[in-house]
Simulated assay, not measured.
Amino acid sequence: MRHVLVTGAGSGIGREVAIAFARGGDALTLVDLHAAPLEETAQAVRAAGGASCATVAADLRGEHAHDEVMDAAWAHAPVDVLVSSAGVYPATPFLELDARTWDFVLDVNSRAPVLLTVALAKRAIAAGRQASVVNISSGAALRARPGAAPYSTSKAALEAATRASALELGQHGIRVNAVAPGFVEVGSDVNPVTEEYADAVGGTPLGRRGRPSDIARAVVWIAGDEAEWITGEVLRVDGGSSTGAWHLPQHWTAIGQEEGLA
């Protein structure tokens, strides 16, 4: 049995990740900004067979939030797995950006996962324990889109931080990886999207939009023993959408046809 700390556990991907670990009999500490959705997830975790479940309502932007959250989790048991799933995705046109909006997105999406990893690593090393970290990135780390300059930057930074932390923590038996979802339907009140937007980005070569369970299975796998020799990697779970511009129309003539050879 492991002790798994999941941020952003109040809904969406974070909730599904927590439930997936619970199905394996793991103990959970769930973190989110608001207590009410956390309790809903906690009930689902208990119903799924989680060994135990604690909740911590916290704003991860706080100066000492990373240590406070890790201390609260560690008080129950040493943390074996950290999944940083908390994230925000405001749509802000580039010319309307200001420091407050930029810092808000980067603080939640990049700064918090990094500092939580530091907090876990310090405690794990002191206790002589191994640990696994999984950061939730996004396809936006590779491809910018209108209104998402802070979000794309935050996820690109998170992927770089994943590699950097994996490089320095590997000698201590701490693996750090990321899972980068494509478009996933989560029905989030915090990060709502229009159906028009979903239609524009939700198509994939595999013919459907992503589900939170698609991401949860990947997180559980890469956090576990079957992936024990993998660190510093970004696992893209996106239905093939990152393979290329698959939805564009073919714009050339097959060789030979235009010359009457075919």
Rank of each mutant, 00 (worst) to 15 (best):
V69F: 00
H247G: 07
V88H: 04
N109L: 05
A126P: 05
S138R: 07
A149L: 15
G25C: 09
A54Q: 10
L235G: 14
A141I: 05
A91K: 12
I13D: 09
L38C: 10
D59C: 07
A121S: 13
A157D: 08
E39A: 04
V219P: 06
L116S: 15
A131G: 13
A126F: 00
S154V: 05
V219M: 03
G203A: 15
G50A: 10
A121Q: 03
E258N: 12
L261W: 07
N177L: 01
L261N: 09
G203T: 15
A178I: 03
R217K: 13
A124H: 04
H172A: 11
A72W: 00
A148Y: 12
E159N: 11
R175D: 05
P205R: 09
A121L: 02
A148W: 07
R211M: 14
A9Y: 04
V179N: 03
L158P: 14
A178W: 02
V45R: 02
F104L: 10
T101N: 13
A18V: 09
I136G: 02
P192R: 11
H34C: 03
A156T: 12
R15F: 07
W229I: 10
L120A: 06
D199H: 15
E196W: 01
T204C: 12
E39Y: 01
V81W: 00
Q43E: 13
G232S: 06
Q43C: 01
I255T: 14
P78G: 06
E68S: 12
V83P: 08
W221L: 10
E228Y: 01
M1E: 10
P93M: 04
Q130I: 02
R15Q: 15
T153Q: 09
L167S: 08
A75Y: 03
G139K: 01
T117L: 05
V179W: 01
T101V: 13
L97E: 12
A35C: 01
A58Q: 14
G232E: 04
E195C: 07
T231C: 06
A198R: 15
S52V: 00
G128L: 01
R61Y: 01
G173T: 03
I255R: 15
E233D: 15
S213H: 11
R100V: 12
P212E: 10
C53F: 02
L115M: 13
W221P: 06
R145E: 15
V220R: 11
L33E: 10
D32Q: 06
F21P: 11
D80T: 05
T162G: 12
A22C: 05
T153R: 08
E233F: 03
G25D: 13
A35R: 14
L167D: 08
F104G: 06
I255G: 06
P146M: 08
G170K: 03
